[in-house]
Design a protein around this nucleic acid. Sequence first.
RNA 1: AGGCCUGUAGCUCAAUUGGCAGAGCAACGGACUCCAAAUCCGUAGGUUGGGGGUUCAACUCCCUCCGGGCCUGCCA
Length: 329
Amino acid sequence: MSKKRILSGMRPTGKLHLGHLAGALSNWIRFQEEYDCFYEIADLHALTTDYQNPSGIRDNIREMLLDFLAFGLDPEKATIFIQSKVPEISEMHLLLSMITPLGWLERCPTYKEQLAQLADREITNYGFLGYPVLQTADIISFKAVRVPVGEDQVPHLELAREIVRRFNFLYGELFPEPEAILTVNPKLLGTDGRKMSKSYGNAILLADTPEEIRQKTATMFTDPLRPYRKDPGHPDACPVFGLLQMYRPEESAAVRPACTSAQLGCSDCKKKLTEILLEFLSPYQRKREELAREPGRLQEILDRGNRRAREIVNDVLAEAKTKMGLYGY
RNA sequence: AGGCCUGUAGCUCAAUUGGCAGAGCAACGGACUCCAAAUCCGUAGGUUGGGGGUUCAACUCCCUCCGGGCCUGCCA
């Protein structure tokens, strides 16, 4: 009885932060016990928005891999690979592009949203529009049946299912329709009170030094309705409390009344949070430093992952091409 | 390939007939706060895309190269 296969990916756009850990990486680590996991470092997807300075992508791949391994992704259990090192995925993407109607892509909420949000950058490109098609290629190249996604990625998975149905209808049954594993994305707030995100510059990185963590927590946004020490606080609107709650649920239960009754001040709370974060992160960071000293081992992990991924994708691509009448000339 | 527009601080944009390169936001520092935010005060930030030319003097005019946008044409 073989395990169900999962595919998930992350774009190497920088070092990971607490939000990545809570929203994605911790799930990845959990899933590797239960599923046959393929975790993709999506450098081609990174290129859709960062094509103007691609030099950083290379460094980011290494940083991301260090974060993965330090926090417990196990290359013995899961396959970690680089998207562009499995070129058959790109070929699959090309095949899918032939049967994907433009309207499906233009209707994508993420497309419209990102277009408006990143208006300063030039992303009115072909590759950007086709982003979800490449995602579909990722998934079906492995015949993955489960895809862990956050709420915002659900439309993409639905698109993938539509493309799969279209392919199977046109050329004959081949791909399973991937199902979402809806992962609850705990809403982690960044240092400015907005959603923690690299592009907002409000993230606490998994690899931040103690000094950086101290500096970031010290300048963190707090309840603006509590200008004075004696005022009652509103913990649910406070990102400091949000993080406390995430990393020390039992302690935060005691902090809540102390905050609302003005017994505990914000700077006390920040001190507490700083200590908790330092304590939480330091073992991983030690592990990370050890790993960083072994570039040969990192390379070996990637080589092996790429090879394993490629073996599978190669077969699936051959099947797809046969179905589409591209073999046997 | 041709036509039109465009390039100024990290970002968005000003600068009179050719006359000392500026503002807002962001950043940093200070005041205020238990911190932070907001607010107030202050600081820093530039080879005006590159090179050449005209001029006493060029962001401004001319030539050229590089980058970007819109339109037309051509091929599929």
